[in-house]
Computed example of a mutant assay.
Amino acid sequence: MTQRAEHSTVMDRLAIDDLITGYAIALDDGDWPAYLALFTDDGRADYRSAGGIEGDTTTITAWLTEVLHHFPIRQHLIVNRRIALARQDGAPGDTATVQADYLNPMRLGGPAAPDDGPADPAAPTGPNYTCAGRYAFTARRTPDGWRLAEVVVHEKWREVVAAGE
Rank of each mutant, 00 (worst) to 15 (best):
T2Q: 01
Q3R: 01
Q3W: 03
R4A: 12
R4S: 08
E6Y: 01
D12Y: 02
D12K: 00
R13W: 02
L14M: 14
L14W: 04
I16T: 07
L19R: 11
L19A: 04
L19H: 12
I20N: 05
I20D: 05
A24W: 05
A24H: 05
I25K: 06
A26D: 13
L27K: 03
D28P: 12
D29H: 07
D29M: 06
G30W: 12
W32P: 07
A34Y: 06
Y35K: 05
L38H: 13
D41W: 02
R44Q: 07
R44M: 04
A45L: 04
A45W: 07
Y47T: 02
R48K: 11
R48L: 07
S49V: 09
S49F: 07
A50W: 06
A50L: 05
G52A: 06
G52E: 11
I53W: 06
I53K: 11
I53A: 01
G55F: 09
G55D: 10
D56Q: 06
I60R: 10
T65V: 00
V67A: 10
V67I: 12
L68N: 10
L68K: 01
H69V: 04
H70Y: 11
H70D: 15
F71H: 07
I73H: 03
H76I: 02
H76E: 11
I78S: 14
V79A: 14
V79R: 10
V79L: 12
I83K: 01
A84H: 09
L85V: 05
A86T: 09
A86E: 15
R87N: 03
Q88N: 10
D89R: 14
D89A: 15
G90Y: 09
G90L: 12
A91K: 14
P92I: 03
P92L: 04
D94N: 12
T95F: 02
T95G: 02
T97N: 11
T97E: 15
T97L: 10
Q99S: 08
D101Q: 11
D101M: 09
Y102C: 05
L103H: 13
L103E: 08
P105C: 02
M106C: 12
R107M: 02
R107F: 06
A112S: 13
P118Y: 00
A119Q: 03
D120C: 01
P121L: 01
A123N: 02
T125M: 04
G126F: 02
P127G: 07
G133E: 14
G133F: 13
F137E: 01
F137D: 06
T138S: 12
T138Y: 00
A139K: 01
R140K: 12
R141F: 03
R141Y: 01
R141N: 02
T142M: 00
P143K: 00
D144K: 03
G145F: 06
G145A: 04
R147E: 06
L148V: 07
A149D: 15
E150D: 13
E150I: 00
V151K: 03
V153Q: 11
E155S: 08
K156E: 15
K156H: 15
K156M: 14
R158P: 00
E159Q: 14
V161M: 08
A162V: 09
A163C: 01
